[in-house]
Design a protein around this nucleic acid. Structure first.
Length: 1014
RNA sequence: GGGCGCGUAGCUCAGUGGGAGAGCACUACGUUGACAUCGUAGGGGUCGCUGGUUCAAUCCCAGCCGCGCCCACCA
């Protein structure tokens, strides 16, 4: 055995010591410590000899992050499966770790430096800054691990991995080099999404569209007139008839173009019109003059221009717009970058800016590296040239300032042609929240389309399955239209790209500098000085290697052989593209089986819900509706909760509103519910149909109450001498109630397995709840009381053993979802025999429902339950005082019915509060009557009976039954039904009709007797 | 524009081609030694609307209405 679990590790507990309540705070801490100290979660702990492996890799949380409700859900589900498989004896590993989270972490550290008034990233320089980040990682990196431990996550913490661990770093570099040498990674100069705040490229996925409303400088479509060059004019239609044919024209010496980003005018290098657009046919091949800049730009014909949209003429800014970039390439338009990395306007970054402008000649052509010279020359030039002064004033302006200035300048020149409100979505950086610019730079790209093919195929042919399955469509849709993946980032925190450049810029991509030097030497024929690429890799590049990298790849470790392919990945839908797809691509490319076939990293991807507040709103700091999982576990007083939520927003007015809402929703703050209750509630609410899991405190409270119920049931059993009996064999139970609970237990165990095998966490929780509370507590323990407290020692002994056994099965079945309270009870109910193993390593129930269920016991107990419920119902409706003990008179009783009652009289007497029972030919006068199978139950309650109330009750019951009978009669009278419905269905309907008719007869008899009384 | 999902009890949601369910909330009664974080009984739903398929539709199909999410685009 891989762990140090010793027999008798759990203390035996005397009855008198059984605590009255479960002290979650103390017990959770104590039990977590024991699990930890005894290495209960080690890879392979509790594995049976030769067992199959079961492995889950955790979605690595950000190293600087802290636990949120999404983590709580995600990890609860992983833990349920892991604990379940571990108890089943699988060779189990839940692999934990954290992600370095490039941008996010760098952002946090930069912000902390700023808050502390320390020098910023640039001032510190790369080395010193990275030291700060590592220091922060060391300081805060364990936070989330400790939080996960509080929830009971049974990861093998000794194997915790970090995406920047040396071994993992090595895997990342090898993958990069491998892909490079396969031609699947390349460097290219093209437009990328540029984040001007972080001054780095980001991937398409890191861009989020934000709708902007019309304002002074956004949310509008502005129109400008671009004068035609060389005195050209053309006839432009200005009026149309109903058919859309032009009826009136005007002579124009300009084109009208429109834009949502006026500042990009400066980078325009053409105007595009559709080749079939009659209006502009004669202008193609001619030129326009770009306002403000005075650049002479060609008018080109390109299908991209849509004659239906706007004026049909589109300004082309190939260096600052993705569509224009493509058109520009097709049409041979120049690409002029007019922005700095901070997205300020620059006229000197790109010497081409001045080409074909009136300012092209003379001193302005000065090299951009000598900007001061150029500025001096420009100033001199400006004295004679007002247009140039205007233009120069734009240099260095922030893009949004420049936008205003350009608008004003257009107006001043009489080239402003109006604007329309145009609320539209503008790309923003998902971290920086600033507007993203398409920006022309050199970056590294992964040929994602090629890698995607096997990743698509693996899901297409079922090697990897999604649950719920419909997420496969989402996965396909993205992968089938995938664009090259920009993986270089102009950041410092991350895996630096393993590329070195020679003096002439020749790249050498190798896993180490030594190898790169050797390659360079071979290339140049001599040793040369190399310069390493400054950029780091996209965080998701390394996350994509998580399953293989954490298990030791590229080394062929025991773990890699044992646990790869991992089993199920549990994650949120928001990272299907970011992460799941990338792991599939990388895994399929690098991992092979003995036969050389690609092996996907997991056979199942389970997509869990997204946790929202009770209104279905995503939990977010800025909305102020966040609930911290640990506040639910430990409780949180109102003032602390309010303060936490206020801290998430900057706007004081908004903070006030959040405070008011919080005070209203949680007037007493949060009660401590314990980790088990939170886990149980999350599991119970996690269903495959719903995308949002609306977390309700009522549900957590209910789950806590469920734990309390279980605790009290165990305490009752314990106080009544129920202790595990090693000699007890469930199949050998003799008493009907014991046979019955054995069968029920086997059924619920099978249901739990079935639910977990199909990832139906809500079914699992619901079945446990219904069985534990509704069957074991409500009925079995009540049935057991007369036997436990009776004077038949044989029955008592069997019942004690059965009660203990059934409880033990509940503890095992419930352990995966609520591990602390069940482990605690496992100790407390150990009895004199003690426990061989802790519950975490106990043998999962393996019960054969087919042999353990006893149909006769089920039928008998079912009948007894219905009788008790019927009597109770009548008593309540007739307002019989609880203390009054009635007499039960059976009429029309079949021998089987009287035998059943005879055998179980002790139970019925107690639970239905009856004094005695007898049979009779006819019902006593003034009886209340209930129809049963094989008998009619009569309660002579003449003194308390309200004739009209009883009449109403019977009539209501009859109406209900008659309605059912009528429906069934109609159905059975339908020839088509008899001919086409399956025989079992027809038979079932016949039986139901017979039962309904028998009941009707009994009820109408009762009604008649009542009428005689009145 | 493309895709996905949801509309079932007052609320939050399960569910199934053949008898409408759970939790919470609600009503009445209850201190019967495991449990008031409880017990017993009860009220409450034309399963969004309209058609179709079927012997049979809350469930399958189509359309519509309402709500939400994702992707793309927006000169």
């Amino acid at each position: 055995m891989a762990d140090g679990q010793a027999a008798g590790g759990a203390p035996n507990t005397d009855n008198a010591d059984f605590p009255k309540t479960f002290d979650a705070a103390a017990e959770e801490a104590r039990i977590a410590r024991i699990w930890d100290e005894q290495n209960c979660f080690r890879a392979g702990a509790n594995a049976k000899k030769g067992a199959d492996s079961f492995c889950i890799v955790i979605p690595p949380p950000n190293v600087t992050g802290s636990l949120h409700m999404g983590h709580a859900l995600n990890n609860t589900l992983q833990d349920i499966l892991t604990r379940w498989r571990r108890m089943q004896g699988f060779d189990t590993l839940w692999q934990p770790g954290q992600d370095h989270a490039g941008i996010a972490t760098q952002m946090v550290v930069e912000r902390k430096l700023a808050e502390a008034g320390e020098p910023g990233r640039r001032e510190l320089g790369r080395k010193a800054f990275l030291e700060k980040v590592w220091a922060w990682k060391e300081e805060s990196g364990d936070t989330i691990i400790n939080q996960l431990k509080r929830l009971g996550a049974s990861c093998d913490w000794s194997r915790n991995r970090f995406t920047m661990d040396p071994g993992f770093h090595d895997a990342v570099l090898r993958v990069f080099v491998g892909l490079y040498k396969d031609g699947l990674i390349y460097r290219d100069k093209r437009l990328v999404n540029w984040d001007p705040h972080f001054e780095t490229a980001i991937s398409d996925l890191e861009v989020e569209p934000v709708t902007v409303q019309p304002g002074s400088n956004q949310g509008k479509l502005w129109r400008f007139r671009y004068p035609l060059a060389d005195g050209l004019t053309y006839r432009h239609p200005v009026a149309h008839d109903d058919e859309g044919d032009a009826t009136d024209w005007e002579e124009r010496d300009y084109l009208v173009v429109a834009t949502t980003r006026p500042e990009t005018v400066l980078g325009d290098t053409g105007v595009a019109v559709h080749p079939d657009d009659e209006r502009y046919k004669d202008l193609v091949g001619k030129h326009a003059i770009l306002p403000i800049v005075g650049r002479r730009i060609p008018i080109v014909a390109d299908e991209y221009a849509d004659p239906e949209k706007g004026t049909g003429a589109v300004k082309m800014t190939p260096a600052h717009d993705f569509n224009d970039f493509e058109v520009g390439k097709r049409q041979g338009l120049r690409m002029i970058n007019v922005m700095t990395p901070k997205a300020a306007i620059t006229l000197f970054e790109d010497a081409e800016f001045w080409t074909d402008t009136p300012f092209a000649s003379g001193p302005i052509k000065a090299k951009k590296s000598k900007k001061d010279d150029a500025a001096a020359a420009l100033r001199k030039h400006c004295e004679a040239n007002r247009d140039l002064l205007d233009l120069w004033s734009l240099d260095g302006l922030d893009r949004f300032e420049a936008r205003k200035r350009v608008l004003a300048m257009m107006e001043a020149r009489g080239l402003y042609d109006g604007a329309d409100d145009n609320p539209h979505e503008v790309p923003h950086g998902d971290r920086s929240k600033v507007v993203i610019e398409p920006y022309l730079t050199d970056q590294w790209f992964v040929d994602a389309a090629t890698l995607a093919k096997p990743a698509i195929e693996a899901v297409r042919n079922g090697e990897t399955k999604f649950a719920p399955q419909n997420w496969e469509k989402t996965y396909f849709q993205w992968l089938e239209h995938i664009e090259p993946w920009c993986v270089s980032r102009q950041l410092w925190w991350g895996h630096q790209i393993p590329v070195w450049y020679g003096p002439d810029g020749e790249p050498f991509c190798e896993a180490t500098e030594k190898e790169a030097k050797a390659a360079a030497k071979a290339h140049y024929g001599k040793s040369v000085k190399l310069r390493r690429d400054e950029d780091v890799l996209d965080t998701w590049f390394s996350s994509g290697l998580w399953p293989m990298g954490t298990l030791g790849w590229p080394k062929q470790t025991r773990e890699l052989t044992t646990y790869y392919q991992t089993d199920v990945l549990i994650t949120g839908f928001d990272i299907i593209f970011f992460w799941v797809a990338r792991m599939m691509m990388m895994g399929m490319h690098f991992m092979k089986d003995e036969a050389g076939r690609d092996v996907p990293p997991f056979h199942t991807v389970y997509i869990n819900s997204i946790v929202t507040d009770e209104e279905g709103k995503k939990m977010s700091k800025s909305v102020g509706n966040v609930l911290d999982p640990l506040d639910i576990v430990d409780g949180c007083d109102l003032e602390t909760l309010v303060a936490k939520r206020r801290a998430g927003v900057f706007d004081a007015k908004k903070a006030d509103a959040i405070e008011a809402a919080t005070r209203k929703q949680f007037p007493k703050g949060l009660e401590p519910f314990g980790a088990d209750a939170l886990r149980f509630a999350l599991a119970a609410l996690e269903s495959q149909g719903q995308r949002a899991l609306k977390l309700s405190m009522a549900r957590v409270e209910g789950s806590r109450n469920f734990g309390t119920k279980l605790w009290n049931a165990a305490r009752f059993a314990n106080l009544n001498g129920c202790a595990p009996d090693p000699k007890f064999k469930p199949e050998a139970a003799t008493r009907t109630v014991n046979k019955w609970i054995v069968g029920e237990t086997a059924r619920v165990a099978a249901a739990c397995d079935e639910a977990l095998e199909s990832y139906r966490f809500n079914d699992y929780a619901a079945r446990l709840y219904a069985h534990t509370w509704g069957v074991y507590c409500d009925w079995y323990l009540e049935f057991a009381k007369p036997l436990l407290q009776g004077d038949d020692p044989v029955a008592q002994a069997e019942t004690r053993a059965t009660a203990a056994w059934a409880l033990e099965q509940i503890l095992k079945l419930m352990h995966p979802v609520s591990p602390f309270i069940t482990e605690s009870l496992w100790e407390a109910t150990a009895g004199p025999a003690g426990r061989k193993k802790r519950l975490v390593h106990a043998d999962w129930p393996s019960l054969d429902a087919a042999t353990l269920a006893d149909p006769e016991a089920d039928a008998e107990l079912g009948w007894i339950v219905r009788l008790i419920e019927a009597v109770r119902s009548v008593r309540a409706e007739m307002n019989v005082p609880p203390s009054a003990e009635a007499v039960l008179v059976l009429t029309a009783a079949e021998p089987a019915a009287t035998a059943r009652l005879e055998r179980n009289w002790a139970l019925v007497k107690r639970l239905a509060r009856l004094a005695s029972w007898e049979t009779a030919e006819s019902a006593p006068k003034g009886s209340i009557t209930v129809a049963l199978e094989g008998a009619v139950a009569n309660l002579p309650l003449a003194d308390v009976i309200d004739v009209s109330a009883e009449q109403a009750r019977l009539e209501k019951a009859m109406a209900k039954t008659r309605k059912e009978a009528d429906g069934l009669t109609a159905k059975l009278g339908n020839e088509a039904f008899l001919a086409k419905a399956p025989e079992e269905v027809v038979e079932e309907q016949r039986e139901r009709l017979a039962a309904a008719e028998a009941e009707l007869e009994k009820l109408s008899g009762a009604l008649m007797r009542l009428a005689e009384m009145a």
